[in-house]
Computed example of a mutant assay.
Amino acid sequence: MATWFVTGASRGIGAEIARAALKDGNNVVVAVRNPDRVPDDLKASDTVLPVALDVTDNDSIPAAVQTAVDRFGTIDVLVNNAGRGLLGALEEITDAEARSLFDLNVFGLINVTRAVLPHMRAQGSGKLVHIGSRSGFEGEPGVSLYSASKFAVAGISEALSVEMAPFGIQSMVVEPGVFRTDFLDASSLSVAAHRIDAYDGTPAHVTLDWIDQANHAQLGDPVKGAALIVEVTNTDKLPTHLYLGRDTLERLDVKYQQVQKDLAPWREKSAATAHDDADAA
């Protein structure tokens, strides 16, 4: 029996991951901003511990982590799931909106991970599972700042997979496509308050129109997605990336093609920027 600590676990993919981990026979710490909103099947029991945690409140994080350790003895799996989206062309997004997004999606993840790592290092084991996004390997119009935050998550996770290896700790970033949760609702997705009409009819605002059509009709099944995340996390060796969903796989193929298209005409000149004596060295 392992202990899972899941942030943002009151709804959406976070709640489904908590359920899947619980079904798999684990202890689960359900870390949420408001424990009163925890679903009935994730309320306190012998194997479930709801804790109040706002990942943007750095002062409250150590207490939540310590409460989990005091109850179950360890934290074996940390799932950094808490996050939200932000729509709008880059020019439309204010500094305050961008910083608020990064406080949650990036710095919240950093601070929770920083609080959990000493416990994992002390026990000589642990797994870090960071919920990124398809937008974390492909910048998309209308979600530039959200993409930037998820690119950051991917970079952090990749670095941690190497940094923490000497301590027996693994790190994986999950990059899901669109799953049928409430992520596209106003509770999880913000739209830039300032709208510039010049972007109407361009890709940045086409994304805004797409949201209304896609909400609650997304391709991915969050129950199946959560089950796969738990299955993969249970393996001895985590992949560095878990690409999750049919649409993610399709866009990954497009990304590969774009990399090759960008690389081919400039490969030789790129290599030639080395010092002339580089080969001799």
Results as ranks from 00 to 15, higher is better:
Ser188Gln: 13
Gln123Thr: 15
Asn58Lys: 14
Arg11Asn: 08
Phe107Pro: 12
Gln218Asp: 06
Ile13His: 10
Val162Pro: 05
Val254Glu: 14
Pro203Arg: 07
Leu109Phe: 09
Val79Trp: 08
Ala68Lys: 07
Thr3Cys: 06
Val65Ile: 00
Ser147Phe: 08
Leu22Ile: 10
Gln260Pro: 04
Leu263Trp: 12
Leu101Ile: 01
Gly88Ile: 00
Asp221Cys: 06
Ser60His: 07
Ile169Met: 04
Asp95Ala: 11
Ser135Phe: 15
Thr207Ile: 13
His130Asn: 15
Leu53Ser: 00
Leu42Val: 03
Val223Leu: 14
Gln66Val: 00
Asp36Ala: 14
Leu184Asp: 01
Leu242Trp: 06
Leu249Cys: 11
Asp57Val: 02
His216Thr: 02
Pro50Gln: 04
Val30Ser: 05
Asn111Ile: 07
Ala281Trp: 14
Leu128Val: 05
Glu158Tyr: 06
Ile75Thr: 05
Ala272Tyr: 08
Ala115Cys: 01
Asp40Cys: 08
Ile196Leu: 15
Ala96Trp: 06
Gly25Cys: 01
Gly126Ser: 04
Phe137Tyr: 15
Ile61Asn: 00
Glu163Ala: 02
Gly225Ile: 08
Asp57His: 11
Leu184Met: 05
Leu86Phe: 02
Ala122Gly: 12
Ala15Lys: 09
Ser125Tyr: 14
Ile110Asp: 06
Gln218Met: 07
Met1Glu: 06
Ser10Leu: 04
Ala192Asp: 03
Arg246Glu: 14
Phe5Gln: 04
Val254Arg: 13
Pro239Lys: 09
Phe183Pro: 06
Thr233Lys: 10
Ile17His: 02
Thr113Tyr: 03
Ala98Ile: 09
Lys269Cys: 05
Pro176Thr: 01
Asp262Val: 10
His216Glu: 01
Asp197His: 10
Ala96Leu: 06
Arg251Ala: 10
Gly136Ile: 00
Ser144Cys: 11
Thr202Ile: 12
Val173Met: 11
Gly155Glu: 01
Asp262Ala: 12
Ile211Tyr: 01
Asp95Phe: 13
Thr7Phe: 00
Leu208Met: 15
Leu128Arg: 07
Phe179Met: 13
Gly225Glu: 10
His194Gly: 09
Thr235Ile: 12
Val116Gln: 00
Phe72Met: 04
Val55Tyr: 01
Val174Phe: 07
Thr233Gly: 12
His205Thr: 11
Ala89Met: 07
Leu86Glu: 00
Ala271His: 10
Pro239Glu: 03
Asp57Gln: 12
Ala64Asp: 01
Ala204Gly: 08
Phe179Tyr: 15
Ile61Trp: 00
Asn80Ala: 03
Asn105Leu: 11
Tyr146Pro: 13
Asn27Ala: 09
Ala272Ile: 07
Thr3Met: 04
